[in-house]
Design a protein around this nucleic acid. Sequence first.
DNA 1: CAGTATTGTTACAATATTGTAAGCTGATGA
DNA 2: TCATCAGCTTACAATATTGTAACAATACTG
Lengths: 228, 228
Amino acid sequence: MAQLKNILLVDDDEDLREALAEQLVLTEDFEVFEAEDGASAMRKAKEMHHDLVILDVGLPDTDGRELCKLMRKQGVKAPVMMLTGHDSDADTILGLDSGANDYVTKPFKFPVLLARIRAQLRQHEQSEDAIFQLGPYSFRPSMKVLVDESDRKIRLTEKETNILKFLYRAPDGVVPRDVLLHEVWGYNAGVTTHTLETHIYRLRQKIEPDPSNAQLLVTESGGYRLMS
Amino acid sequence: MAQLKNILLVDDDEDLREALAEQLVLTEDFEVFEAEDGASAMRKAKEMHHDLVILDVGLPDTDGRELCKLMRKQGVKAPVMMLTGHDSDADTILGLDSGANDYVTKPFKFPVLLARIRAQLRQHEQSEDAIFQLGPYSFRPSMKVLVDESDRKIRLTEKETNILKFLYRAPDGVVPRDVLLHEVWGYNAGVTTHTLETHIYRLRQKIEPDPSNAQLLVTESGGYRLMS
DNA sequence: CAGTATTGTTACAATATTGTAAGCTGATGA
DNA sequence: TCATCAGCTTACAATATTGTAACAATACTG
């Protein structure tokens, strides 16, 4: 995973919660934030962005499904994984219909949970609500904006958005010009690599503090790379 | 579900497959297409669009995971649900990493599968690869086009795309003007309902066979409705 | 029926987006 | 050193998108 993902882990069973948190952190892909009841979960959900929420169905103050609905209503778009003790159909259905994305029955083996977490994260990256961390910006492709720390918005054109999207997703960083051309303009595009260069230039003007000395969107012999 | 969804069901166990198909059809939400081996599954996947694929891991000719990867490589974007007989971790992980979206262990209870299918479909509607059936068109929001039966493409502007998207998703059809305004332009938009009307007009020019007698995008006292 | 509100139609102007060309820079290598 | 090339910068023109205004048609109400 290119960037550390924030996970909000909500479970009142402290032993389980901490064990889980520890294992998640060990993967070095996640930063884990913990909550032990619905109220504090909501609070934490509001005060920062999480990339995924793990939610126990049974909490001391709220029902997990209700909490999930509440979170959705409050605008939490991240995938929610429900943990439950009972594998009854009713639970499953209700769990899924509360707006949760996946459902895991306790006890579970950690690798299974982990695989499902990764699958959810991967899937969410394709979604309209996806938010990416891009250097100092948070990037919302569907809104075509970059938002900086002080909440200033940088509007992007469609081409710019697509360029960033494909650069971000490139598994190992460098994307050759012609690949980028094909990805953004399509395979029969009558556009020269020169056009791409101009777009990169314009992007840099918008996103680089010092455009003539690119830090985020760097040139790399034959292509471009997005620094995280 | 507003529109019948096509499901491709791949399993060599004829009894199970037909029982499943029947139950799915009974919900009246799905049309089911069956295949009993990898080869014919690939053939069917190519010849038409399916909204979801159910795939048994063990097939006579191919391994289900390989088939899944192959489908992905061939451009199948629909969610894939893997059915497996063994609940081993390895299977789970491999299953999820092959590009499958969810994983259900046999034997399962039908309502559980159904709930998971619905969850996948719901989630996929938010994705970039989502394709909607809109009257005679297939609508690809991420490409901002409508494609008609004879493969002619109608390009849409961003506003037009968003209008269609929100109309399509409206649970019970009619969307009041002001709601649509808020959804498409945002809550602090300095745009009058008049602007919206113009956009609707332009949309109709593009998508209605007889624009002065709208069949797809109809006016409904106070708002608009998209006919499926 | 008159008149008012709602919705549709047309035309136009402001703006944003995009592609291209032309010149520039700096590195590389013969 | 000089030629060459990849990549950057700047400017400009074509086009697409969008909002608005003015007017026409239609439905609704008293």
